[in-house]
Structures are given as C-alpha cells and as structure tokens.
Design a protein around this nucleic acid. Structure first.
Lengths: 203, 203
DNA sequence: GTCTATAACCTGATAGAC
DNA sequence: GTCTATCAGGTTATAGAC
C-alpha cells in the first residue's frame, strides 16, 4: 500500500520535471524512468501510456492554479485591493513554478485537441467571459478609473506577471543574471507592478 | 536555376509553418514534405538534416525582429514617443506573426544549447544590458517619470505586447473569440497600451 | 510490484534509378 | 533535381519470469 503510493508519486514527480522542461513531444519515457529511479516498464504498469501519464501530470500541475487565479479575478474586492492581491499571490506562485505557463501555452499550441479534452474538466469556461467582464467592469467603474476594456486590463495584468516567467531563460541570458538575480527581480516586481498598473488605469 | 530557388523556398515556407506550430520535437519531416508538395528526400537534398533545416528556419524567422526590437529599445527618442513607436511597430508585427514569440521561448526552454548557438550570430548580447539600462534610465529621468528600474519597465512593456500573442489560443477559447475578434482586440490594444503604460510610470 | 527482453512502430537519413 | 525503396536507430509498449 505505502509502497504503491510512493512509487506512483515518484513517477509523477519525475514526469512533472521532464514534461515541464521538454514538453510532451520532447519528453522520453526512459528519461522519466531514470529520474524516478525505476524501470521503464513501471511507467506503463502505473499509467498505461505516455498520453495518460501526461494527462495526470497536466491535471495535477494546473488543477490548483486555474481555479485559484479565476477565483481571484472574480472576487468581490475593490479594484486596487484585488489587483494587489492577484499580483502578490500569482507572482509568489510563479517564482516557485516558473515553467508552468510556458508549458501550458506550448502544449495548447502544439496539440490543441489533447489539451482541450483535459481543460474541459479543470476549467468550466461557460460564460466565464461574461462573469469576468461584468466583475472587472464593476471594479473599474467603482474605483473611478478610466473606462477601459476589461479584457485589456486582465491581459495587461496577467502579461505583466506571466511574461517574466515565460521569458525567464532569455532574460537571464540577455541581462546576465544568476538565478538569485532573477528571483530578486521578481520579488521587487511584486511591489512595483501594482503602482504601475493602478496609476496607468487612472483617468 | 529558377526552379531550385523555388523548391528551396517552398520547403522553407512549409518548414516555418510546421516548426512554428509543433516546435522542433513535434515537427515531422514527412509533414513538412507534404506541406511543401515534394518528397521527403528533397528536404535532405536541400538542407542535409532536420537540425540544419530548423536552423535556417529559426534564423529567417528571428533575423528581422530581434535587431529591429533592440534598435527600437535603444533609439534616442523621448520616452513617450519611444514607447508609442515600439508598441505600434511591435503589435503590428505580432498580429502578423503571433506564433513567433511562443516558438522562440519554447525552443529556448526545451533545447537551450541549440538556440544558444544560433542566437550568438543573430544577437550580439555583450553589454547590451548596460547600454539598454543606460538608455532607458535616461529616457525615464528626462521625462520626469518615477524612478523605476529600467529592467522592470522593459519587461512590462514587452509583456503587455507579447503576452496576448503567446496566449492567443487560450484567449480565443476563454473569451470565445473568432480570429477577427482577436485581431480587433490587438488593434485596439495598440491605442490603449501607451496610455496605460505612460500613465503608470508617472510620479 | 518489479524486472529483463523484445516486439511493434515510427522517424530521420541514405542509396540508387531516372 | 526528383523520385522510390530501404536502412539504421530510437521510442513506446508489451510479454513473461520472478
């Protein structure tokens, strides 16, 4: 019993690392087995196929962040507080999981069908659009900010947080940063972003 | 003569499409040949290997945009003008080439060595960091804007432009957009972004 | 549950005729 | 230059012993 769960967990952890870095197409079952310290046949014993293993990994990786993010976006707070809380929570998450956004966007682009099937369960998209728009529109108007499209605001907010994670490796190369430099950049960004964004949206 | 160039061009165009969508690992030489309307053996006749074909494609795709973007960032204009011109030029480019940023970041993450070799020629990174920082710092202080880290400004600017391109397919799903809706979103964004960003950086 | 060995398949690359 | 046929190597997946 204990050993079952343990092996399964080891496989999942190893698979997460490999899939996150290499993507579905670049990942090798052999590499996952090696990293998990077990045999290749075990992967199939526990997860039957590469597709199913990937699905489990994707589900585990995204099941937390999607609802959490949507929940933050939909919460009934004053705009400025809301924005600060999203930036704070999401940036903290991204410092710990910098590879996740690129992973998600990569898989959506290279194999939309596979992801569409998984996303159905993870996110209930139906009329999310309208709910979000109404919520953000309200928050904006109540705050006396410029009347600007809610979609544009959300994209600017998310882009400001997520882009530095997606571009992490290029940033480190171009600006000659160590890992510590990068983390420092992200932590400082948590304070500066709300200022930039809130100011920018004022009339 | 004419036919040589023609076939080579057909291959490159087909390879661009496939590599952009699937990435190096997901791309199949057979699919590229099919899309080019020629035989698989021809790919090797003209480009010798998948690696070399990819290198040609990557070079062609990035040779324009990297220098152009860096040049814009380094130009000696007042901050507001500079920002507007970057947003305008870059957003136009991204509407036509929405897949390119994700392609670049994906390849950097899944196979850093391959890209590092190619990037050496395309971008001369040496002390780009200092030049950029100095240039942006000057632009900011001359404009009487808040004293904010140049790196953060550049990241916010680029993220605001690039993120909607990277997230294109997810955006279309979540907000139930058609291709036309998306293009419209990006065009409107060109006008709204400078306002948001400039305002946000003022004291 | 775990392992070794191997099957079945796919993919990049080449040989050789035209 | 272009094609067909095929090789060589690697990858997922399974069979079967323990």
């Amino acid at each position: 019993m204990e050993e079952i769960k343990d092996t399964e967990k080891q496989i999942l952890n190893a698979a997460k690392e490999i899939f996150l870095q290499k993507g579905f197409d670049g990942a090798r079952m052999q590499d996952i087995a090696d990293k998990a310290g077990i045999n290749k046949a075990m992967l199939h014993y526990y997860f039957r196929s590469k597709d199913r293993l990937f699905e489990s990994v994707f589900r585990e990786l995204t099941s937390n962040i999607f609802p959490k993010l949507f929940q933050s976006l939909m919460s009934e707070m004053p705009f400025e507080e809301k924005l600060k809380s999203i930036v704070n929570n999401y940036m903290d998450f991204l410092v710990i999981n910098p590879d996740l956004p690129l992973f998600v966007f990569r898989e959506i682009n290279s194999n939309p069908e596979r992801i569409a099937n998984i996303l159905k369960d993870v996110v209930k998209i139906d009329d999310f659009k309208n709910q979000l728009k109404g919520n953000v529109d309200n928050a904006i108007s109540e705050s006396g900010l410029e009347n600007i499209d809610a979609t544009q605001v959300v994209l600017t907010l998310l882009g400001a947080c997520i882009f530095p994670a997606i571009a992490k490796n290029l940033i480190k190369i171009v600006f000659k940063m160590t890992e510590d430099d990068y983390v420092d950049l992200m932590i400082k960004r948590k304070e500066q972003l709300p200022k930039i964004l809130i100011n920018g949206l004022k009339k």
